[in-house]
Amino acid sequence: MTSCHIAEEHIQKVAIFGGTHGNELTGVFLVKHWLENGAEIQRTGLEVKPFITNPRAVKKCTRYIDCDLNRIFDLENLGKKMSEDLPYEVRRAQEINHLFGPKDSEDSYDIIFDLHNTTSNMGCTLILEDSRNNFLIQMFHYIKTSLAPLPCYVYLIEHPSLKYATTRSIAKYPVGIEVGPQPQGVLRADILDQMRKMIKHALDFIHHFNEGKEFPPCAIEVYKIIEKVDYPRDENGEIAAIIHPNLQDQDWKPLHPGDPMFLTLDGKTIPLGGDCTVYPVFVNEAAYYEKKEAFAKTTKLTLNAKSIRCCLH
């Protein structure tokens, strides 16, 4: 018999989150649709729960009410004593943790798909938090293969000092899905179709896995975050240069030392320094102006996964 890495157990509980950011409308629209008619997301033997994560922000069509829901799922915020004085999103995070967690427990949901849009030209993107997770690498390989020839990129946010504390991190297997470009507060049919297909293929993978299909060893190309880059700023902290036209919409493309990065209003080009080629992502993302992030630098690498098969009882 072929030796293989056996994944822990079959997958039982899956959640699909929309509206973690209330103005990213593809996930909101799909989740609302699936709450009314969820036939397309159901798979035999699998509990799939669509869920609106930040209903107040969705109602106002804004990213958040008090603070970013997708950055506060750490033990400090989840452990705060519940009171009306807490920011709305912290209270909501505790409610979500109660419903789908608790985080880092045996009772937490197996998989959470968190649906997002970006204003950046990132196409279909899967966000991975753990480079050693054979199950998710296999799932992402399946999704990428199923979507081809449509490109699907994998963004690895594993980093020693950049801690995200994402909404989906309460699950055993957290999956971020990011599709763009799409303006905030807008629905685009092409973007919706791409996100819908990503979810379909992900659920198909889980179904095949649960039925005992063995997935042979595989490898995927990923883009691992190195650092986030702020806009150049003046002495008052105001933005002093904008994304250069040569960099705009060039997510995932190589940016070499000396290539144009920013452009000042008086026409001066600010190039990339250093001696390493990087791959920019979230270029000129609207939501990241407040976070002082013009783009993120990534490096390209390959992740390998062992063969996996479900432990059938």
Score class of each variant (00 low, 15 high):
Val14Met: 03
Arg43Cys: 04
Gly258Cys: 13
His208Trp: 14
Gln138Asp: 02
Asp234Ala: 11
Tyr88Lys: 07
Ile96Leu: 11
Lys103Ile: 07
Asn304Cys: 13
Glu221Ile: 02
Lys49Tyr: 14
Asn77Val: 12
Ser146Phe: 10
Asp259Asn: 09
Pro181Thr: 01
Leu147Tyr: 04
Gly79Cys: 07
Ile220Val: 09
Gln184Thr: 13
Gln250Ala: 07
Thr299Tyr: 10
Ile220Cys: 06
Phe295Val: 01
Pro149Ala: 04
Ile127Val: 09
Thr264Lys: 10
Arg91Leu: 09
Val278Ala: 06
Asn23Gly: 06
Phe51Glu: 06
Ile177Trp: 01
Lys300Cys: 06
Pro254Arg: 04
His141Val: 02
Leu128Ile: 04
Ser105Asn: 11
Ala15His: 00
Thr44His: 15
Thr20Ala: 04
Val154Leu: 04
Lys297Gln: 05
Gly27Ala: 12
Thr298Gly: 07
Ala286Phe: 11
Ala287Phe: 12
Leu247Gly: 03
Ala15Cys: 06
Ile52Lys: 01
Lys80Asp: 12
Tyr164Val: 14
Glu238Ile: 06
Leu128Pro: 00
Ile226His: 15
Glu238Trp: 05
Val48Arg: 01
His207Ser: 09
Ile239Gln: 10
Ala287Leu: 07
Phe135His: 01
Ile157Phe: 10
Val179Ala: 14
Ile225Arg: 13
Gln182Leu: 11
Asn70Gln: 09
Thr118Val: 15
His116Tyr: 08
Pro181Ser: 04
Asp266Gly: 14
Gly45Leu: 05
Val14Cys: 10
Pro271Asp: 11
Glu9Tyr: 09
Thr145Trp: 07
Phe17Tyr: 05
Gln250Thr: 09
Asn210Val: 09
Ala202Tyr: 00
Pro245Ile: 03
Thr298Ile: 03
Tyr231Met: 06
Ile206Pro: 00
Met122Ser: 13
Asn117Ala: 05
Gly27Arg: 02
Asp85Lys: 11
Asn134Arg: 04
Trp34Pro: 01
Glu95Arg: 13
Gly237Trp: 03
Phe215Ala: 02
Lys253Ile: 09
Tyr153Ala: 15
Glu158Ile: 03
Lys291Tyr: 09
His10Asp: 13
Lys213Met: 11
Ser307Thr: 07
Glu106His: 11
Phe262Asn: 00
Lys49Cys: 14
Phe29Gly: 06
Phe100Ala: 06
Phe282Arg: 13
His33Ala: 11
Ala15Val: 05
Pro181Ala: 05
Ala93Glu: 08
Pro257Gln: 05
Arg91Gln: 15
Arg132Cys: 10
Asp107Asn: 09
Asp107Arg: 09
Ile157Glu: 08
Pro87Cys: 08
Arg43Thr: 04
Pro183Ala: 14
Glu8Thr: 14
Glu129His: 07
Pro181Glu: 03
Ile41Asn: 03
Lys224Asp: 05
Asp259Glu: 08
Tyr289Met: 11
Lys49Asp: 12
Ile111Tyr: 02
Lys224Thr: 06
Leu147Ser: 04
Thr264Ala: 07
Asp130Tyr: 03
His10Pro: 13
Thr302Val: 13
Leu263Ile: 15
Tyr231Glu: 01
Cys67Lys: 13
Cys276Asp: 14
Val31Arg: 00
Glu40Ser: 04
Thr62Ala: 13
Ala57Lys: 04
Ser83Tyr: 10
Lys103Pro: 10
Asn133Val: 04
Asp234Arg: 11
Lys300Phe: 04
Ser108Thr: 10
Ile111Leu: 12
Ser307Gln: 06
Gly273Val: 10
Phe100Glu: 06
Leu78Lys: 08
Gly274Ile: 03
Met139Gln: 00
Glu47Val: 11
Ile72Gln: 15
His21Gln: 07
Phe29His: 15
Leu162Glu: 11
Thr302Leu: 13
Asp230His: 13
Arg71Asp: 14
Ala148Ile: 07
Glu8Lys: 11
Ile6Ala: 14
Lys60Pro: 06
Ala93Arg: 08
Thr298Asp: 00
Lys80Tyr: 14
Glu227Ala: 06
Gly267Ala: 06
Arg71Thr: 08
Gly123Gln: 06
Gly185Val: 01
Ile191Trp: 02
Pro271Met: 09
Leu30Ile: 05
Ile270Phe: 05
Cys61Glu: 15
His208Thr: 08
Lys213His: 10
Phe135Trp: 05
Lys81Ile: 13
Lys253Tyr: 08
Leu75Val: 08
Cys311His: 11
Ile225Ala: 10
Arg132Leu: 09
Ile157Arg: 14
Pro271Gln: 13
Met261Pro: 02
Lys144Leu: 15
Val90Phe: 15
Asn117Met: 03
Ser120Thr: 09
Pro181Cys: 02
Thr302Glu: 11
Ile270Tyr: 05
Val31Gln: 00
Val283Ala: 02
Thr166Asp: 08
Glu106Phe: 08
Ser3Phe: 07
Pro174Trp: 14
Tyr231Trp: 10
Leu128Cys: 04
Ala7Tyr: 09
Pro183Leu: 00
Arg168Gln: 13
Cys152Gln: 01
Tyr231Pro: 02
Thr2Ala: 08
Gly38Glu: 13
Lys197Pro: 02
Pro102Val: 08
Ile308Cys: 06
Ile226Asn: 08
Asp193Phe: 06
Gln182Glu: 06
Leu265Tyr: 09
Lys253Asp: 04
Phe51Tyr: 15
Asp74Met: 10
Thr277Lys: 15
Ile220His: 00
Tyr109Asp: 02
Gly19Val: 03
Glu9Arg: 14
Glu9Phe: 15
Leu75Met: 10
Lys172His: 08
Tyr109His: 13
Gln182Arg: 02
Ser169Met: 07
Glu158Ser: 07
His5Ser: 10
Thr269Ser: 12
Leu187Glu: 02
Glu24Trp: 00
Asn77Arg: 12
Ala165Leu: 10
Glu36Tyr: 10
Gln248Met: 07
Leu192Asp: 01
Val48Phe: 01
Cys61Lys: 07
Gly19Asp: 00
Ala287Ile: 07
Tyr155Ser: 07
Asp204Cys: 01
Leu156Val: 12
Lys172Cys: 05
Ala7Met: 13
Leu46Glu: 01
Phe113Val: 11
Tyr64His: 12
Asp275Leu: 08
Phe282Lys: 13
Leu203Met: 12
Asn134Pro: 14
Arg132Asp: 10
Ile191Gln: 07
Ser161Gly: 11
Ile170Glu: 03
Lys197His: 12
Glu47His: 09
Glu221Met: 03
Leu115Pro: 01
Val186Gly: 03
Tyr88Met: 08
His98Phe: 14
His313Trp: 13
Leu99His: 11
Asp74Pro: 15
Met195Gly: 10
Asn134Ala: 11
Glu40Gly: 03
Met122Val: 08
Asp249Arg: 03
Leu115Asn: 03
Phe29Pro: 00
Leu255Val: 13
Lys200Asn: 14
Ile112Lys: 01
His208Glu: 06
Thr125Leu: 05
Thr125Met: 07
Tyr279Arg: 01
Glu178Val: 13
Thr264Pro: 00
Asp107Trp: 13
Cys310Asn: 08
Ile220Trp: 00
Glu95Phe: 15
His21Pro: 00
Asn97Ser: 14
Cys311Asp: 14
Pro160Tyr: 12
Lys81Thr: 15
Asn284Arg: 02
Ile239Trp: 03
Gly19Tyr: 03
Asn23Met: 04
Gln248Val: 12
Tyr142Leu: 00
Val154Phe: 05
Ser108Val: 13
Arg233Leu: 15
Thr167Asn: 06
Phe262Val: 00
His208Asn: 07
Asp66Gly: 07
His201Trp: 04
Gly273His: 07
Cys67Val: 11
Asn236Gln: 10
Arg56Asn: 12
Pro183Met: 04
Lys291Asn: 14
Leu30Trp: 01
Ile52Phe: 05
Pro271Asn: 12
Ser83Ala: 15
Lys268Pro: 03
Thr44Ala: 14
Ile270Arg: 04
Leu25Phe: 15
Val90Tyr: 13
Tyr279Phe: 10
Leu187His: 03
Val179Arg: 01
Lys291Cys: 10
Tyr155Cys: 15
Met122Thr: 14
Ile72Arg: 13
Ala241Leu: 00
Val278Trp: 08
Asp114Asn: 05
Asn70Phe: 06
Asn236Glu: 11
Arg56Asp: 11
Leu162Asn: 12
Asn121Leu: 01
Ile225Gly: 10
Asp249Cys: 04
Lys228Arg: 15
Leu136Cys: 06
Phe73Asp: 11
His201Gln: 05
Gly79Leu: 12
Gly19Cys: 03
Tyr231Val: 02
Tyr231Asp: 03
Gly176Glu: 09
Thr119Arg: 02
Ala202Thr: 02
Thr264Tyr: 05
Ile157Asp: 14
Val179Ser: 04
Pro181Lys: 01
Trp252Glu: 00
Ala296Asp: 15
Ala148Gly: 06
Lys60Thr: 14
Ile243Thr: 04
Ile191Leu: 07
Pro245Trp: 03
Gln248Asn: 04
Arg71His: 08
Lys300Val: 08
Pro151Gln: 09
Phe295Thr: 00
Asp251His: 02
Pro280Lys: 00
Ala219Leu: 15
Val175Asn: 00
Thr125Asp: 00
Tyr288Phe: 15
Lys297Gly: 04
Thr167Cys: 13
Arg309Asp: 04
Asp110Leu: 00
Ile137Pro: 00
His21Tyr: 09
Leu115Arg: 02
Phe282Thr: 05
Phe29Arg: 08
Asp251Cys: 10
Thr167Asp: 07
Thr125Tyr: 04
Ala305Pro: 02
